[in-house]
Design a protein around this nucleic acid. Structure first.
Ligand code: MN
Ligand code: MN
Ligand code: MN
Ligand code: MN
Lengths: 219, 219
DNA sequence: ATATAATTTTAGTCTTGTCTAAAAATATAT
DNA sequence: ATATATTTTTAGACAAGACTAAAATTATAT
């Protein structure tokens, strides 16, 4: 049995572990979870006792096989619920996260499998993030950051790195959604801001923006 | 802010309060919640502090207006989720309760309103229980117990008093569902068992069974 | 190499929700 | 009316999960 709180820690370690070193630091977890380092240490010990993380004092943690599976299951649920909210319940992509944070902890194998089927086995959530399968495997897709695209290229928005409501609303305002075609018109050497064309409109975006939009090159 | 545990107590008091006296006893709550009377007393004090129940020591509790609204909201959510599970996610009526016990605590106004709309504003859950509206009002329907029906009457199953999986599976086995037509063939004086006809089949049922099936008289 | 800084852990406290055992209040029976 | 039984509350303890402050360890800079 994994508690709600344990699930949240596992998820945090899971996310931190795949964008950097395998060993995740106590402070990194504390920051991600908006909690204190001492609380993290306490919880890490519990997770280590349950064989969900590998832990050596002062050396950080990594997920065990069991831990990774448990974490992937939470992520799977989170993302499937987000799809339900957007596809069936009229939520916009900036509204889903908070609710999915609650729904991801509902415990029912049948529920999540039926949800998966009902949604027609989606491969991505509303932010372009991949949905792990039952065994925790995710389909790796080639994703570049818009900031890395070259001038004159045309590309397609396939995801967002940052899913905060503020950022998503910014994208809405400029009519950028998953699948939107973006053409790189020019790039400023000085601050790496870009002028891009979306739906025949030119927009100037900062490096901060282009750094948070995932794209693939248009065929 | 009402915690998950508080919501469960409010719901228990709500259910107990409408099938008997207005004042609900500590022991009754303890039994319903499978907890100890001392735990109930502790919680009652918290609920009284939050003005969710009226409480006089040794005299039992009743819900305040706020308490009743909070309780009805939980019941509303519980039953709407049960409808989703049965109508859209292939759950049978004996499988929904456990999951709905978890889902009823998800906090999102929008979610529950959209769910309501998505399900086409159902008035009853899969067990024939009425779904409170946003203001906590429920449509009272005339329901009799099958045990009270007279010989030779034909009636329609409109609900179950007991929603345990065992009982619901028993009904499935005998092809009794909501809307099923039931004819009272005979009634035994001694133990009040009945012979009923369902889909051209005769079944003998004990008083315990007939006491847990709600019916209305067929037109 | 040693002092300083940053990170991590420990020790001790708090809140929520639960429990057992004992005390207090209420209900029931003679 | 009084003894007995039942119900309810109180007192004290415990586990989970979080926090602060202090101690221990590791990293960094001269
Ligand atoms: Mn999310
Ligand atoms: Mn997402
Ligand atoms: Mn139910
Ligand atoms: Mn029900």
């Amino acid at each position: 049995m994994v508690t709600l709180s344990e699930e949240n820690y596992l998820k945090a370690i899971y996310h931190l572990g795949k964008q950097g070193s395998l060993e995740v630091s106590t402070n990194a977890i504390a920051e991600q979870m908006e909690t204190k380092a001492s609380s993290v240490t306490d919880m890490i010990k519990k997770l280590a006792d349950k064989n969900l993380v590998n832990y050596i004092k002062y050396q950080g943690v990594s997920l065990t096989k069991d831990g990774r599976l448990a974490a992937a299951s939470v992520v799977r649920k989170h993302r499937l619920w987000e799809v339900l909210l957007v596809e069936k319940l009229n939520f916009s992509w900036d509204e889903v996260h908070e609710v999915a944070e609650q729904l991801e902890h509902i415990k029912s194998e049948k529920l999540i499998n039926e949800l998966d089927a009902f949604l027609n086995y989606p491969e991505e959530d509303p932010h372009g993030d991949p949905i792990p399968d039952k065994d925790g495997n995710i389909k790796k897709v080639e994703k570049l950051l818009l900031s890395q695209a070259d001038v004159n290229n045309t590309c397609i928005c396939v995801g967002v790195k940052n899913s905060s409501a503020d950022f998503l609303k910014y994208l809405d305002k400029h009519h950028i959604a998953l699948g939107t075609s973006i053409q790189i018109i020019s790039k400023e050497k000085f601050d790496e801001s870009m002028t891009i064309q979306v739906n025949n409109t030119l927009i100037n975006i900062s490096k901060t923006i282009s750094n948070n939009i995932f794209i693939k090159k248009a065929l």
